[in-house]
């Protein structure tokens, strides 16, 4: 029993000696520093080390700054067409009632045509035909009626977006005055901030994109960095205006970086061009 007690004392003394040695010669681990961030006085020895070790104190400050930056991250913009996609999903989940021979039914409460499933082929055929009618074939009679009422929101979106982008001012109009003055709207709806040396290049960081605007139609998202437009580098907002003016109404390319990948699209068609 006596031997055990002596062994225990020796072991405790050895452990204590090892800890003292460690605190004098080794730095705190990242996890220990993280613990001190949340509970500064939890571990007295770690805290004592922090007070005496300049390097660990500097690392503690860096952790602290990262945590502060994390708590101040701004909200992100969802994709511009999110609501359209949600509506389509809501539509697909609505109950089918009053199905007719053609596979259509009329939802009395919502004033909208809904699809049945038994005559799917007929439905698809009429749907495609209706798209053609809407696009300008101007077929007469009941076919025109079906076309107008069965189009999905996603298919009408380009037309609607064009109207909004070209004719209707948005709430951010005053903040984007230089771009509005250009008379063309490829970037209308976006806010930019010049950035340097992003992925080794200068460009315009997209801070925000208003849904259903020209910039959203183009495909820009917050966080993208626009690096050129019409093959002209874009370092300042006026460079965008210059690119628009230089295009003289012809389609022009817009190139941006997203998550380290380069993307190129043609305005106004939205056609994706291969990386040059």
């Amino acid at each position: 029993m006596m031997t055990c007690a002596i062994k225990r004392v020796c072991r405790n003394f050895g452990e204590r000696y090892r800890q003292m040695n460690q605190s004098a010669s080794e730095h705190l681990t990242a996890e220990q520093i993280s613990e001190l961030l949340d509970e500064p006085r939890k571990d007295k020895e770690d805290w004592l080390h922090l007070e005496t070790c300049e390097e660990c104190r500097a690392e503690f400050e860096r952790f602290s700054r990262i945590r502060m930056a994390l708590s101040a991250l701004p909200d992100l913009d969802p994709p511009a067409d999110e609501w359209t996609a949600i509506e389509a999903k809501l539509d697909s989940k609505e109950p089918r009632i009053n199905q007719s021979v053609l596979g259509f039914g009329w939802h009395a409460g919502r004033s909208r045509l809904i699809f049945g499933s038994r005559q799917l082929a007929v439905t698809v055929a009429v749907f495609v035909f209706a798209v053609g009618v809407f696009a300008g074939l101007q077929l007469p009679g009941p076919i025109g009626f079906f076309a107008e009422n069965t189009l999905q929101p996603g298919l009408t979106a380009p037309v609607v977006q064009d109207k909004i982008a070209l004719n209707e001012p948005t709430e951010l109009e005053s903040q984007r005055a230089p771009i509005q003055q250009a008379g063309t709207s490829a970037f209308e709806g976006a806010e930019f901030e010049p950035v340097r040396r992003y992925e080794g290049r200068s460009g315009l960081l997209v801070l925000r994109v208003t849904p259903r605007t020209a910039a959203a139609k183009l495909g820009l998202r917050s966080g993208d960095v626009v690096v050129d437009a019409g093959n002209l580098p874009t370092r300042q907002v006026p460079d965008l205006i210059q690119a628009i003016n230089a295009s003289q109404g012809s389609p022009f390319s817009v190139r941006w970086i997203r998550d380290g990948r380069e993307m190129v699209k043609l305005w106004p068609s939205g056609e994706i061009r291969p990386k040059e």
């Binding site: 994390l70 901030e193 950035v195 040396r197 992925e199 966080g223």
Partner: peptide
């Protein structure tokens, strides 16, 4: 791979790390 000296881009570095 890149350190950024712009505050907003540094925020992107943070988001990438997350």
């Amino acid at each position: 791979t890149k350190a950024q000296d712009d505050v907003i881009v540094a925020r992107h570095v943070l988001i990438q790390a997350i």
